[in-house]
Each structure stands twice: as structure tokens, then as C-alpha cells.
Measured scan of single mutants.
Amino acid sequence: ATNIVGKVKWYNSTKNFGFIEQDNGGKDVFVHKSAVDAAGLHSLEEGQDVIFDLEEKQGKAYAVNLRIK
């Protein structure tokens, strides 16, 4: 899925991951530091509006192509 809109539920910059809540009511999506770095960001803030693509690997969904809304 592409261009999914959501809000950062939480992001832990020490542990380098967090979760994004989808605006469409879907399951929360894992986001890793690598996606944050690829977006040219240092971190994510709770409540921040983002747009992302959804990829699945080994049955787990995660956010890629992250951008600030």
C-alpha cells in the first residue's frame, strides 16, 4: 500500500523504532530508524502527521518512504 496517512503514536530514538497510527483505522505500523534516516529526519515526534508506504516482510508490516505531511 502507498501514500498512507497517519500520526506518530510514539518513537524511541534510543531504541531506534516506534509506531505510526494509521488514520484509516488499520493496525499500528512499525517504523525503524532506517526509514527515519532515509527521510532525512533525525527523529519523529509523538502526534506528528506523516505519509508512508507499507511493506511486509516475514508477515510483519512496516513503514517505508516516510515523509512529513
Rank of each mutant, 00 (worst) to 15 (best):
E56V: 12
E46V: 14
V8D: 00
T2N: 14
I68A: 08
A1E: 11
K9G: 03
D37N: 13
I68P: 13
D53E: 05
N24E: 07
L66P: 02
L66A: 01
H42Q: 09
V5Y: 14
V8A: 02
V29E: 01
G6H: 01
K60V: 07
G25W: 10
Q48D: 08
V64S: 10
I20C: 02
E55R: 10
V36M: 08
H42E: 13
I4P: 02
S13G: 10
A39D: 02
W10Q: 03
D37A: 15
A35Y: 06
K15H: 07
G6T: 01
L66T: 01
I68W: 14
G18S: 01
K69C: 05
I20V: 07
T14W: 10
W10H: 05
S43N: 14
A61M: 11
G40E: 08
K69S: 04
A38M: 08
K15D: 05
G47E: 06
K27N: 11
G26I: 08
H32T: 04
V5P: 11
E45G: 12
K15L: 14
K60Y: 10
G26P: 11
A63H: 01
L44E: 01
G25F: 10
G6Y: 01
A35T: 11
K69F: 06
N24R: 08
A63T: 03
L66F: 02
I51F: 13
E56T: 14
D28P: 07
G59M: 10
W10L: 05
K7R: 12
D53Q: 04
G59A: 11
D23R: 15
N12L: 09
S13C: 05
I20L: 10
A38T: 09
W10K: 05
Q22C: 04
V36D: 01
G18R: 00
G59W: 09
N3F: 05
V36C: 04
E46A: 15
Y11M: 03
W10I: 04
V5A: 11
W10F: 09
G6M: 01
K69E: 09
N16R: 14
G25E: 08
D23N: 15
K57V: 11
A38K: 11
L44C: 02
Q48M: 09
D49N: 15
G40N: 09
G40C: 05
Q48R: 08
A63L: 03
Y11P: 01
K69Y: 06
